[in-house]
Amino acid sequence: METTGTAQRTAWEQRSLPPVEQLRSDLWSVPVPIPHNPLRYVNVYLFALDGGGLGLLDTGWESEAGWSALTEGLASVGGSIADVRGVLVTHLHFDHLGLAARVREASGAWVAMHPADADAVRRLTATEAQAAVDAEVAFLVRLGAPREEALGDVGGAENLSGFHRMAVPDRLLGDGDHAAFPGWTLRAVHTPGHTPGHLCFAEERTGLLFSGDHVLPRISPNVSSTTGGSADPLRDYLDSLAAVRDLDPSEVLPGHEWRFRGLAERTDALTAHHERRLTELLGAIREHPGSTPWDLAAHLTWSRPWEQYARRMRIFAVTETDAHLRLLASRGLVVGDGGAVPTWTLRPR
C-alpha cells in the first residue's frame, strides 16, 4: 500500500484535524470532526458540478463544530451551503449522514442513498427513542448480556435523540446506478456489511474509488449484527471486499483516515484479519463451550484490556463477536443450542 494522503496521515499522527485539500481542479476533501470519538473526523468530499453548483459525498456528524467545519470548508474553496445541489451518502451512520438534513434545509439539495439504508433511516426516525433503547437492550440480553449491564451500556433515550433529526433520503441509488453529479460518472457499488446499504462510488472517468467505511487504510470497520439487520453481516462484508478487490482504482478516497493506493493489498489484509479472528473465536469456543456472544467477547483480543470496554465500545465488540459467530455457524463449524439466549459450542465432527 502507498499512502497518498500524506497531510491527512501526518495530522492523524499529530492528533490534529487535517487541512482542506484540493485533490483535483474540481474535487476537495473537507474534514468534519466527530465529537468524543477515536475516529476524530469524517472525510467529506466536495465536487464542482458542470453547469454550476457543488455536490457533497457524506456530510459529517451533526454538531455546531461539524457545521462550522463544513461551511468553512465550503467557503475556503469559494462556495457556500447554498451552492450544494445534491448529497450522496455512503451509509446511514450518524458521522456520515448527520448533517444532511441541515444541508438540505439550507440549500434545497437532494439526498441519495441505497434503499436498504434508506429503509433503516425511515424506521429510526419513526421510532420513539425509548422504544429504540428498549429494543437494543433486549437484543443485547439475547446475546447474553445481564440486563442491568445492557441498560448501562445503551444509556438513556436522550442518547438516541439525534436519530430523529436524520435526513430521510429523497432519492435512491442501487448497485450500478450513476449519481446525478453533472460532469462526473460516479457509479454506485453496493457493498453491504458495515451496514446493509453501504455504497462505494467508482468514478469511471478518473478511476477514483470513494470507499466510505468499506475499506479504510488502517482499521477494519465494525461489522456487527443488529436488530432487524442481515442474518450474516460478516459474510456480506467479505463478499463485498471480494467484489471491489480487482477494481484497480487510481486512488482510494476513504471516509476516515487517509487516501491510499493498493486496494487489492488492503482488501486481502482485511480478509485475512477476519479469518484470523474467526480462528481465534473457534479457539475461545473450544475452551469455553456453552458460552454466549457476551461471554465470548471477553476471551478475544481487543485493542485494549477487556475490562476497559463499556458502553458503545462494548456493544460494538459483542455484536461484532456475534457477527463472527453467525459466519462460523453458516460454515457449519459451530452450533447454537436454540435457547432464548443461545449458547455456542463446536459442531461435533
Rank of each mutant, 00 (worst) to 15 (best):
residue 183 G to V: 13
residue 158 E to N: 07
residue 123 R to L: 14
residue 210 F to A: 09
residue 23 L to T: 05
residue 105 E to K: 10
residue 240 S to T: 11
residue 153 D to N: 15
residue 299 H to L: 04
residue 26 D to P: 03
residue 148 E to I: 03
residue 80 S to M: 00
residue 101 A to Q: 06
residue 297 A to Y: 00
residue 347 R to C: 08
residue 12 W to R: 11
residue 274 H to E: 14
residue 126 A to N: 13
residue 326 R to G: 10
residue 9 R to Y: 07
residue 184 W to E: 03
residue 190 H to V: 02
residue 348 P to L: 09
residue 19 P to L: 03
residue 169 P to D: 06
residue 241 L to P: 09
residue 56 L to I: 11
residue 241 L to G: 05
residue 135 A to K: 12
residue 172 L to W: 04
residue 174 G to N: 12
residue 227 T to Y: 10
residue 232 D to F: 06
residue 332 G to D: 05
residue 261 R to W: 02
residue 126 A to C: 01
residue 117 D to P: 01
residue 132 A to F: 15
residue 332 G to V: 01
residue 52 G to W: 04
residue 184 W to F: 10
residue 69 A to T: 01
residue 105 E to G: 05
residue 322 D to S: 15
residue 66 G to F: 05
residue 221 P to C: 05
residue 57 L to R: 00
residue 320 E to F: 08
residue 114 H to D: 09
residue 296 L to T: 00
residue 200 C to D: 12
residue 255 G to V: 06
residue 318 V to R: 10
residue 91 H to W: 05
residue 141 V to Q: 02
residue 228 G to Y: 13
residue 230 S to E: 13
residue 100 A to P: 08
residue 49 L to E: 02
residue 231 A to Y: 03
residue 16 S to A: 15
residue 110 W to A: 04
residue 326 R to W: 01
residue 283 G to R: 07
residue 208 L to C: 07
residue 192 P to L: 00
residue 288 H to S: 10
residue 209 L to T: 04
residue 218 R to H: 11
residue 88 L to Y: 07
residue 2 E to P: 01
residue 291 S to F: 10
residue 74 L to G: 07
residue 187 R to E: 15
residue 122 R to C: 12
residue 4 T to S: 10
residue 124 L to F: 13
residue 82 A to L: 08
residue 298 A to M: 05
residue 6 T to H: 07
residue 325 L to D: 01
residue 317 A to W: 03
residue 300 L to C: 05
residue 283 G to E: 12
residue 345 T to I: 04
residue 68 S to P: 00
residue 283 G to I: 13
residue 182 P to L: 12
residue 92 L to I: 12
residue 110 W to M: 04
residue 150 A to L: 04
residue 263 L to K: 02
residue 1 M to E: 09
residue 191 T to V: 14
residue 107 S to W: 06
residue 179 A to Y: 08
residue 165 R to Y: 14
residue 149 E to A: 11
residue 91 H to G: 06
residue 275 E to W: 06
residue 213 D to C: 08
residue 147 R to P: 06
residue 303 S to P: 03
residue 306 W to L: 08
residue 226 T to S: 14
residue 202 A to S: 04
residue 3 T to Q: 09
residue 68 S to M: 07
